[in-house]
Design a protein around this nucleic acid. Structure first.
Length: 827
RNA sequence: GCCCGGAUAGCCCAACGGCAGAGGCAAUCGACUCAAAAUCGAUUCAGUGCGGGUUCGAAUCCCGCUCCGGGUACCA
């Protein structure tokens, strides 16, 4: 039985894939009645070129979960689609002239091929691509629902313009002042654009993070991004101009420490305020410089503070002090009111500014063990109010905060207020390859939505994809020129397209009712599947996609189209696959191609290896040699199974324990231990690496039983091997199925997940460790049920223990039944 | 700067507060072979980043650092 059994994934894998394809094994009906449903979803891929190793990892993780859920009796929805609109395909079109539709279709075909080749269990009947009119028709429909609800609107605003991509970007797509994709410094432009009113949902988006089972760091990132700050709005009045300037502050308790007042350079009142003060030229020059300097430089907190006085004062509402006004670029127009009260004693930035301009610094909060001088300013810790007002001095700062806000409210000079960092989602793009915005501009009627029965507004073909400051669609005059849906007069179509994140904010809903031509979905069917029970993807989408999708679901729920509040009940973020500790990239030349691994080692090896190298939520380093090791393991399992199947015995029923030799019982025990271990690893934190290691252990034990011992009971071997195959199935479905079929003739994917026999998990005897002062000195095999007293007596009777306790006082004996006895001695 | 992760053998990684080693890689040796591949077997290797503390007992809990990775940052 040596060379005749050769593990041949090239033969095994296509054979089973054919069965699954022919029988449409992974397709599910929407009839969920009476069964627990499970919606397992990995983030849909952006089809560009060929799948990379990250795709192999995410779909291997998702497939393992889907298989485990199926075999534990759940009705599993596990679909696939493509996020097919977007800039890379369009930029490629500009360069090569190939229509984005064609390059995208080509890439989709290669993704489909790979997913089949990898044996991922996908319900292909629900496949979608966001660039298909069948799909984006409903993207447009959703846009219209949001438009009618006032949640999609058009306004002129200061926006981020990417000069390389020649389009505006959402705040979320600007990283360190640069376009996320192009890396170009973003310019500020004042343009009329389309927005989604995501800020209306800021509170719910923060609060509902409590009810979803997501990694804490992702929740934290969303919280930080939304940036909810509780505080107060306080009105400072400029008496000279008789104008009120409200400011937002999170520290109204420090109001008595305000010694100056600062406006952002963009503040619209600056010119008015300076007029007639003699500071006009200086201010104008400063503002011009501030507005033209780039965002990155301005955002640098390390830079020395700059600014100029406006020559005016405002009145502090709590104490009537007149404090000087400045313009300075450390104050941002986008946040709060574009004006701040400066409290240099208790804010680092205000302090820095005060130092540069020689402004007074006043302590109004004293730490509990401070000595009252101005050392240690600015001070932001806990403490009590001082130098403020008899009504507030001595109060703890949190109590003082409340008291001062109440006082402001009574006096009509301010009120409690909440501010957010989150801005509305800018969704329009001046680019071609995206979902057209279903809007018509009519000279008489204004902005008019396209009626729902005229959807989809189909993306027309154009000659030239190059953006020219406006969407290339503007050149498609036949398409642009239309009639107004309301008055029938000549009108023009909106030529901007939607951000691709709009497409991916709802795709998981369409899968639930994929064959519906009448509506985006049937709410009754959606109810059966939503929400996604387990969502899996990269952490790079922690803010963008995952926040947008949550907003869409809440808005659509409010409009009565669905009845869940959160799209993804559980989230798992998988780590990256690295090579030699570095990200794989073409420029580094260290890219490992999953296609190549699959061709040389088989899909099962590639999938199992990527899950074996490290816990899936961690980054993992890809090592060619490690792949060989996993291949050896699969090969060994298959070979042993094939040989056992041809040997004596039948099927894989567990033999009667009573009739077996102790060594064979030990093998059964190992199998049940592995069932227990793998089941826990699957159900808990997705510790696939240790689950796979457990199956390796079991397989190694079988190997030893067969090769070394030679007299292993064939039925025990069959049972152990079938169990190993069964447990390995979620990771390496082909080889597991083949080995299992050889042993039993049955189809593994139709078998229930094995259950561990708790009686076999327990042993009659256990090894107990005897310690002296925590150091192991002896060990003994004792009956599993031995009492504490018995164990203590045994330990103290041990000569090896006695050697370390002789002549010393025994202070304490700790007995942990089933584990150890620790004798603590003194002297 | 702030917020999360992480640091265990030559490498990837395990270890409910209880014997530091499950698994894999690499290395060395051996069996099989005319030989090689494949296969099988055996062996070597760290006291857990550093310094304190709690405990009968700490890789694990607490405090203070260092290094690496990620996120975020004049957000008032």
């Amino acid at each position: 039985m040596s060379i005749e059994y050769r593990y041949d994934p090239e033969e095994i894998e296509p054979r089973w894939q054919q069965v699954w394809a022919d029988e449409k094994t992974w397709e599910v009906s929407n009839d969920v009645e009476g069964r627990e449903k499970s919606y397992v979803l990995e983030m849909l891929p952006y089809p560009s070129g060929e799948p990379h190793i990250g795709h192999l990892k995410v779909y291997s993780v998702g497939d393992a979960v889907a298989h485990f859920h199926r075999r534990t009796g759940r009705h599993v929805l596990h679909p696939m689609g493509y996020d097919a609109f977007g800039l890379p395909a369009e930029n490629n079109a500009i360069k090569t002239g190939v229509h984005p539709r064609d390059s995208t279709a080509k890439s989709i075909a290669s993704f489909q091929r790979q997913f089949r080749r990898w044996g991922i269990s996908i319900d292909w009947s629900r496949e979608l691509a966001t660039c298909e009119p069948d799909y984006y028709r409903w993207t447009q429909w959703i846009f219209l629902q949001l438009f009618h609800a006032g949640l999609a609107y058009r306004k002129a605003a200061t926006v981020n313009w990417d000069p390389v991509e020649e389009t505006v970007l959402a705040n979320e797509q600007v990283v360190d002042g640069r376009g996320e994709r192009s890396g170009a410094l973003v310019e500020v432009r004042h343009l009329e654009q389309w927005f989604f009113r995501i800020t209306d949902y800021a509170d719910r988006l923060v609060d509902d993070l409590e009810v979803i089972d997501w990694p804490e760091h992702v929740k934290t990132m969303q919280r930080n991004w939304i940036g909810r700050s509780e505080g107060a709005e306080v009105v400072f009045r400029c008496e000279d101009l008789a104008v009120d300037y409200p400011v937002f502050t999170t520290r109204p308790d420090t109001l008595f420490g305000a010694t100056f007042f600062v406006l952002a350079p963009e503040h619209p009142d600056i010119e008015r305020l300076t007029a007639g003060t003699g500071h006009e030229d200086e201010v104008r020059e400063y503002v011009n410089r501030a507005l033209t300097s780039d965002k990155e430089d301005r955002g640098n907190a390390e830079r020395t503070k700059t600014g100029v006085p406006l020559g005016r004062t405002v009145t502090n509402p709590v104490n009537g002090e007149h404090i000087p006004m400045f313009v300075a670029d450390y104050v941002l127009m986008e946040y709060g009111t574009g004006a701040v009260m400066a409290v240099p004693g208790h804010d680092q930035r205000d302090y820095d500014f005060a130092q540069v301009f020689g402004l007074p610094v006043r302590r109004v909060v004293e730490g509990l063990n401070a000595d009252g001088d101005d050392e240690g300013l600015p001070y932001t810790g806990p403490g009590v109010l001082v130098n403020s007002h008899p009504d507030f001095d001595g109060l703890d700062k949190t109590a003082a905060l409340d008291a001062i806000v109440r006082w402001l409210d009574r006096e009509g000079k301010g009120q409690a207020s909440t501010n957010y960092r989150l801005r509305d989602w800018l969704l329009s793009r001046q680019r071609y390859w995206g979902c057209p915005i279903p809007i018509v501009h009519c000279a008489a009627c204004g902005v008019i939505p396209v009626p729902e029965d005229q959807l989809p507004v189909v993306l027309p073909d154009v000659e030239d994809y190059k953006p020219k400051g406006q969407s290339p669609l503007a050149a498609a005059t036949d398409w642009v020129n239309t009639t107004c849906p309301r008055c029938d007069a000549p009108a023009k179509r909106e030529t901007d397209t939607m951000d691709t994140f709009v497409d991916s904010s709802w795709y998981f809903l369409l899968y639930c009712d994929a064959q519906n031509d009448e509506a985006a979905w049937d709410p009754e069917i959606l109810k059966r599947w939503a929400p996604v029970d387990q969502y899996i993807g990269g952490v790079e989408h922690a803010i963008l996609h995952l926040l947008y999708a949550r907003f869409f679901i809440k808005a659509l729920a409010d409009l009565g189209h669905l009845d869940v509040q959160e799209p993804f009940a559980k989230l798992f973020t998988q780590g990256m696959v690295l090579k030699d500790g570095e990200k794989m990239s073409k420029s580094r030349g260290n890219v490992v191609s999953p296609q190549e691994i699959v061709e040389t080692h088989g899909a099962d090896t590639a999938r199992t290896y990527v899950l074996f190298i490290a816990p899936p939520d961690q980054n993992a380093d890809w090592e060619e040699k490690g792949v060989d090791g996993v291949h050896r393991f699969l090969s060994r399992l298959w070979r042993l199974s094939a040989a056992a199947a041809d040997g004596p015995g039948a099927g894989a029923e567990q033999p009667d324990v009573e009739s077996l030799a102790e060594a064979d019982v030990e093998l059964l025990r190992k199998a049940h231990w592995a069932i227990d271990k793998v089941t826990n690893d699957m159900a808990g934190r997705f510790n696939f690496n240790t689950a796979i290691a457990a199956v390796m252990e079991l397989t190694n034990d079988v190997s030893r039983a067969v090769n070394e011992r030679g007299d292993a009971e064939p039925q025990a071997v069959r049972f152990a091997l079938a169990t190993a195959a069964s447990l390995l199935f979620p990771f390496a479905p082909h080889v597991a199925t083949d080995a299992y079929a050889k042993l039993t003739g049955d189809r593994l994917w139709e078998q229930p997940w094995p259950a561990a026999d708790s009686e076999l998990l327990e042993r009659d005897t256990v090894e107990i460790v005897f310690q002296v002062n925590g150091k192991v000195r002896d060990r003994a095999t004792v009956p599993a049920g031995a009492s504490k007293d018995e164990l203590e007596a045994l330990a103290l009777a041990s000569p090896k223990v006695a050697a370390f306790t002789d002549g010393k006082t025994i202070a304490k004996v700790i007995v942990v039944p089933g584990k150890l006895v620790n004798v603590a001695v003194r002297g």
